[in-house]
Design a protein around this nucleic acid. Structure first.
Lengths: 208, 208
DNA sequence: CAGCGACCGACAGGCTGTCGGTCGCTGAGA
DNA sequence: TCTCAGCGACCGACAGCCTGTCGGTCGCTG
């Protein structure tokens, strides 16, 4: 049967299904047949809306990173919140909640999803680093942070949290806690914050 | 024509060709046909020696990371060299020379080679982090470094250098220099070294 | 000369992307 | 209000790849 929808509606429908399948099986293991069978459209329709399978992946990632960046950006720009809390808050916004990409985030780390992971990481870094480095610069002017390399500092923090927390899934709770503690400690050192300052900010967020 | 070789010889022949092809075209873009045509063997022969295409990739990566790790390990263990020089030396051994994997290293960063890149990174981290963290612990005992998290410090330094220097290829020389300076600066901060200490060690290496 | 293991190549089954053609919807003109 | 042309969403067969399998061959060695 032939059901016509607007291009935008159909595109989103494809992205929804693709995101779900990529998340549960990985990109390589998901065939375009899986996608079109799930939706009930023909091969031609899929390729009418997207020029390749990888094009679909890119669009899925754009949607997710866009959402994450908007959330992080909103926190970073909210001047009612103390600066340190904005920094920790926007980093945490990337690794936790975010309803939309949640499933993807869980599966993203499997070895099979290398392309997904890499593209996502690239997109995140491009989008988030400027936000974080803005916060760090602001902190330098306020005397909270001290570093001649705010941008690279942001980059280092982002990259580490992205890669290292991937392998956290299958660790013991103690190990996880240690890694997180270490991450906070190193972020303080890199940004030149006072020791324990970020730690406090994080406790402040959780106590709410 | 039928040429019989020992299993080991044939395996290495396959790995040599695969490494070269993966490096120049990427893993996904290299078909098993490319490999067997280049060597002049049949499909069955390839699958007699390796159980899958990915198995070949794993073997290629093992060879490369093994070589790099041996080099870095040798430097790290050479007690005739000052500790700081051993640290910088073993990190540098991973990103520069290494004749064998050179071509691969150049192409590894292309977006298409995501799987190659990720597997390589994982292997490197697993192998190098213990070496570096050993050096850092040693430095802590000597009073050169100061950190409660030597292992995570090593991890952070390794991950960053692996990811961030990927995108360095297409930057201006000034930007590169800045990134490298920043990396050294942050490594000092993370390890709790005196500011400028690593910088000096690196200059010492290059001046030879 | 037997047996092992390196080697062969046809084949099954799956994949992506293409292309000529169909059909529903919309809006302009009668 | 009716008609009809054109646009764009949609279809599905097909070409041309791909990986991995399997029964069988043949060289070497003891």
């Amino acid at each position: 049967m032939r059901v016509v929808k607007s291009a935008e509606e159909r595109k989103n429908e494809i992205l929804d299904v693709a995101e779900q399948l990529f998340a549960s099986k990985g990109f390589d293991q998901t065939s375009t047949n899986d996608i079109i069978n799930e939706i009930g459209i023909a091969r031609g329709t899929l390729y009418h809306h997207f020029k390749s399978k990888e094009d679909i992946l890119d669009a899925v990632i754009d949607r997710i990173t866009g959402t994450l960046m908007r959330q992080a950006g909103a926190i970073a720009a909210d001047r009612r919140i103390p600066l340190l809390d904005r920094l920790t808050g926007s980093i945490m916004a990337l690794n936790v909640d975010s309803r939309l990409g949640e499933e993807v985030m869980i599966q993203v780390h499997k070895p099979q999803n290398a392309l997904l992971h890499q593209k996502m990481q690239e997109g995140m870094i491009r989008g988030i680093v400027p936000i974080l480095s803005g916060l760090i610069e602001e902190g330098c002017r306020e005397g909270i942070f001290h570093t001649p390399y705010p941008e690279e500092a942001a980059e280092m923090v982002m990259i580490y949290s992205n890669v290292a927390f991937d392998e956290l899934e299958d660790r013991s709770p103690e190990e996880r806690m240690r890694k997180i503690q270490a991450f906070i400690f190193h972020t303080e050192r890199i940004t030149g914050a006072e020791e324990g300052a970020l730690q406090e900010a994080i406790l402040r967020i959780f106590s709410k």
